[in-house]
Design a binder for these strands. Sequence first.
DNA 1: CTAGATGCAAACAGTTTGCGTCACT
DNA 2: AGTGACGCAAACTGTTTGCATCTAG
Lengths: 143, 143
Amino acid sequence: MTSVHNFRELCHQHDLAATHQRQVIYETVLSLPGHPSPEMIYEKVRRKIPSISLATVYKNIQTFLDSGMLREVSLHHGAMRVDPNHEPHHHLVCMHCKSITDIEESDVTPVRLRSKLPRGFQVRRISVDVLGVCGACSSIAKP
Amino acid sequence: MTSVHNFRELCHQHDLAATHQRQVIYETVLSLPGHPSPEMIYEKVRRKIPSISLATVYKNIQTFLDSGMLREVSLHHGAMRVDPNHEPHHHLVCMHCKSITDIEESDVTPVRLRSKLPRGFQVRRISVDVLGVCGACSSIAKP
DNA sequence: CTAGATGCAAACAGTTTGCGTCACT
DNA sequence: AGTGACGCAAACTGTTTGCATCTAG
């Protein structure tokens, strides 16, 4: 089974038209190491489809996120969030309204690393995000 | 000791001029629940200093972050980051170059909640960010 | 054939910068 | 008095939208 068939099938499962642009965007995301930004994806996709528009990349990323084919790494991008709390603590994040609430470090089991990290990586701190939907948002409609 | 003195002292410790704007911005951040964005801070500060400029709020937030008086909640704001990895996993985040690398879920000790959450909060998943400085960045200069 | 996808350009939101004036030390 | 902070406006970056055209199903 070729990757073309895989992609068409995947789109069909998610009720999406299998366009050439979509396929190249999706395969490009898979091919990029780490976690690319829309710009990075656009730059690489452009080499295969020079006429593609940045707006198309954005629209399709959004489509893939909505359909669950991709996931967003950082929920609170788009606006800086500032934290005056100097005590070690973790966060409760509402995926819907983007609210961030502190929880104490002792509210979660202690987190420790079990394996070696890439050489040279120096750990400063470990931050736990408990992602979900807050009471206020879940009592209203769910988009 | 009044809060005015506290603030002047705090500024002195960090080698910052203790201006009225700075004090109001700082106290406003402390007063806001959750983790306010620059806009939210600006809106509230404006009630006390109607003539303040949004740029001043931004400049001072940056100053506070640099001096360690405040911390940034989300490192990767400013650009969306996309993740095609459907396996449960965690992230290694470089605070300097903002690179994000996957680590396997089994690379950290299992994380569990030990206390009750605010009523109605529905957990979808728990995400661990190991924050630090990657090998490439730590071998170069440290700003 | 028709709903939905693309490409373009213009609009937006969040953030940064340059510069003249003002205020803290 | 001098360095650095403030306020304003303009510039920038990342993202979204409206609309005419094109294409997958």
